[in-house]
């Protein structure tokens, strides 16, 4: 049955996904903060892939005739949430880079002035 086969594929894909996330954390390529979200996603999909009744029930509840479509819908919603989180993180980092750049610029100006006054006072140049 096509239906069953899809669920097997989905379970295997979820497991592979979980393994990938796990490996990335182990190799310190992924911060735990973001990893939790991804692990959550992976477990969520694994759960739905295996526990078919839940998917059927959810599909019926949402008025979706073809249950695997509900899985896809959830997947897409999950991805959108993750992408919004990325936008938030990028915005925050942009803000942090701005502050760093400003502080660096002001510090350099101050350093230049200190160097100048040192030169004027005849102290030893570095």
């Amino acid at each position: 049955m096509v239906f069953d086969r899809l669920l097997v594929v989905a379970s295997l894909a979820s497991l592979a996904f979980l393994f990938l996330v796990f490996e990335l954390i182990r190799r310190r390529r992924l911060d735990e903060g973001y990893a939790l979200l991804w692990l959550g996603c992976g477990l969520f999909f694994l759960g739905f892939s295996i526990w078919r009744k839940a998917l059927d029930y959810l599909a019926e509840l949402a008025g979706i005739y073809y249950p695997p479509a509900a899985l896809l819908l959830l997947l897409i919603l999950g991805l959108i949430l993750v992408m919004i989180q990325f936008s938030v993180v990028i915005s925050r980092q942009r803000h942090q880079i701005k502050t760093l750049t400003q502080r660096l610029g002001l510090l350099e100006e101050r350093q230049d002035r200190l160097d100048e006054s040192q030169d004027k006072n005849g102290s030893v140049k570095r």
Binding site: T101, Q102, L106, E109
Partner: peptide, 25 residues
Amino acid sequence: AVVVDLACNLGIGGAVQTGFLFAAQ
């Protein structure tokens, strides 16, 4: 003029704010 040289382009808002930081300090 005193020159503050920003390491990367922040857009006019970030540049002007740097000026205000300087003035406040």
